[in-house]
Design a protein around this nucleic acid. Sequence first.
DNA 1: CTCTCCACTGAACATATGTGCACTACATCG
DNA 2: CGATGTAGTGCACATATGTTCAGTGGAGAG
Lengths: 343, 343
Amino acid sequence: MSPGLPTQMGERDDSANRCSPMRTDVRPMETREPLGRVARLHYQHGMTHQEIGELLGFSRVKVTRMLAEARRAGIVEIHIHGEATPFGELEAELTGAFGLAGAWIAPSFSDPERSLASVGMAGAECLTALAPTVRTVAVGLSSSVAAIVAHLRPQEQLPELGFVPLAGSWGGASRGMSPHELVIGFGAAFGARTYHLPAPILAKTADAATAFAADPGVRQTLRLAAGAELLIAGVGAVEAGSGMLADTLTERERGQLTKRGAVGDISARFFDSVGSAVESTVDERVVGMSLRALARIPRRVAVGFGDQKITALRAALRTGLMNHLVTDVDTARTLLRTTRKGN
Amino acid sequence: MSPGLPTQMGERDDSANRCSPMRTDVRPMETREPLGRVARLHYQHGMTHQEIGELLGFSRVKVTRMLAEARRAGIVEIHIHGEATPFGELEAELTGAFGLAGAWIAPSFSDPERSLASVGMAGAECLTALAPTVRTVAVGLSSSVAAIVAHLRPQEQLPELGFVPLAGSWGGASRGMSPHELVIGFGAAFGARTYHLPAPILAKTADAATAFAADPGVRQTLRLAAGAELLIAGVGAVEAGSGMLADTLTERERGQLTKRGAVGDISARFFDSVGSAVESTVDERVVGMSLRALARIPRRVAVGFGDQKITALRAALRTGLMNHLVTDVDTARTLLRTTRKGN
DNA sequence: CTCTCCACTGAACATATGTGCACTACATCG
DNA sequence: CGATGTAGTGCACATATGTTCAGTGGAGAG
């Protein structure tokens, strides 16, 4: 905390403002101040919502909402000292069993929304831990990675850091799920640079993909991504219903992929159970980094959870295609169980 | 947060240990680790006590208690960004009306215990803000100052800082209220040096007091205190029942003091309504810093609250004897109200 | 000027958290 | 060996918090 006296009203701590670009609703300081007051009365002085309401002339419910808003906006930050992690042993087992350089495990919930949020939280921890050690982060598009953005708290600013998408974007409405939004969200949280890949992730034809890839802007971004020291991407399954890409494929394409041994994908690049790229009519239409290039990035974080993704995750980890993992505890246990027993 | 991977089990973050000397019960890391896990599951992942209990095999109540312990031990730290203070306008009014350099106001409660804790909290904020700007802090003994110790969280370590008592100590059992305990508590929180004054605060006779004051250890400590850049002390009233010192005086002594215009004391030095020292049979028995020496310390923080202390506080502030204030909102309002209207 | 929309409110309900108390298990002392 | 203390437990209750929903008023469009 700044050592300024509390009554020096002219001189405000602008740390909240500094971080606010990442928030969707930037409000004037005026609006935020009562939140800080309420937060102090509750968290420091231990007053109940009721008491604060009576003191300041709000209803209890309003105080509850102000406190929720204060947490959401990052005015209230809860820090847990020490690095005891809830599933430490399991993380150690996983890193041992798969030769990983790191694993972050979140609790599982029956509500998939909640599990997603929880994994997003773990992913945010992972990114917070690794980002300060690198200059460029390549970002793959997936709902799990998108969930990370919402859980990044204002933190250490890294103006030298850059976030680069691994591949192009889907057309149409994106619902918070375009690579642009991901990269911008990450960038804002770290005060970092962002880059964009001006092309679709899946072109209409192989020729179109080739043409797109020849575009100077696209080439430049892809070159930058290839030089990244950290990759964070979702791992997708081939089955329908397991993710954006899988749902886009026709039955025929899916059939071709399966026949050729594909078990999963990273940023639209399908791989088989030994971690090799699977060539296909899909693959040649992708505008994005190749599996080979991707595997040259030193730190590669796989994010994913759920039974559907087990096979894909196991292959990505066992073959060394990915060397870090962010997942939930159910998935982690299943991975360990089904992998130890032969397979 | 340290960028270490969560699975690097060998390399622990010892920040918790570094701060633990100030805690009364230092436990092995082993014991603390489950607290960190539970804390993360609750505060980061938003699991309820019930859910955490089911997951880890504790009862719900036990989880509640573990979380309370984690907060108490400083494993969980709640930080509020921005320096909006709950009673900012009132603080500004006070600093204006009394020409103070700073004011910290805590909420009031009908339960005096709670008020004391709350003022302690505000005092901790004050000390945390001011301590890093000085080398030596002179500490007066009072229950309000003692309450600060309990609210100092592990924080910035200032090994060059020193805490020095203003006066000697009471004989007999101290119940956490000796200058030694205060100074040690402050010192531990800041990782600072502590000094002691080997003498009673109130000697049996004036001669005895002179003898004590001549002791090299006593002189050395008092000289150190006189050179402090920051003073933090309670302000006491003359009436019986308003504090340790007042309760110790005989009716006769109290009468003498009142007749000579005493309205309050700082560390056993009584002053009148214009801020001058009141000579008395009590005063000459005190082993401690004189009012004159005390007033030469540039930053002088008065801590105190309650109707009984209004007169004493008003005098100490109006006369410039003290130039910072830590109090509760009721006292602050009364001070403003009764001071504006003439008086 | 009236209608519609929308953001905001608090009452009532649902859930989560905190605490006094009686009980247990184990250690210490006579 | 029993008596006595002490720390830890969870139940049941008391309190605090969070959420849903049906109003409410004010801004902007028609």
